[in-house]
């Protein structure tokens, strides 16, 4: 019988070390930090650009990504996130975790979990744009070069998390 690895995870320090090495490589080869939300932004802009190109060339938020005539998708962060997806698929296949399911605490319904996930996504969408990055681009990549912004982000995201944790505990415990 095949061993069930679906509840097994890599040693967290080892996983962190691996991500840290990728972070060094990203800076060394490309001068870039690792990112997540940046690629989502590019995809969103590309979609709007296909539907309403006149608008994107005018609006202050969209214009910088489309003005050079190249596709917004032709960017480092988009290729990096395509890699992230491939890496996650490889790892999930290895551990036997490739199945459709809702991840949640057993105490809440699927419906509650999905509404919460959608709402959380919206908050992150706004926050990552206003704050110039998410956990990886703002905080982790910032911390790796001692950028003040990374530490402010760290304090605000985790401080905010602990601040609100009590009120949303029913979602998790």
């Amino acid at each position: 019988m095949k061993e069930d690895r679906s509840n097994k995870y890599m040693n967290p320090y080892l996983a962190g070390f691996l991500i840290g090495l990728m972070l060094i490589a990203a800076y060394y080869f490309s001068g870039e930090g690792l990112g997540g939300s940046g690629a989502l932004k590019k995809v969103a802009i590309a979609a709007v650009n296909t539907v309403a190109p006149e608008y994107t060339h005018e609006a202050a938020y969209f214009a910088p990504s489309v003005e050079n005539g190249k596709s917004p998708l032709n960017s480092w962060l988009v290729f990096e996130v395509i890699g992230v997806i491939l890496g996650a698929l490889l790892s999930a296949a290895y551990y036997g975790r490739l199945s459709m399911k809702v991840g949640k605490s057993p105490k809440i319904t699927n419906r509650t979990r999905l509404i919460a996930a959608l709402a959380g996504g919206i908050l992150w969408g706004v926050g990552s744009q206003l704050g110039r990055g998410c956990t990886s681009g703002l905080i982790m990549s910032g911390m790796a070069v001692n950028a003040l912004s990374g530490y402010i982000g760290l304090a605000a995201v985790f401080g905010g998390g602990y601040l609100f944790a009590y009120f949303f505990r029913k979602l998790w415990i």
């Binding site: 990096e80 890699g83 890496g87 996650a88 698929l89």
Partner: peptide
């Protein structure tokens, strides 16, 4: 680099 990052995150 993304593949390495993705493996780290998933694993």
């Amino acid at each position: 680099i993304g593949i390495g990052f993705g493996i780290g995150l998933e694993a």
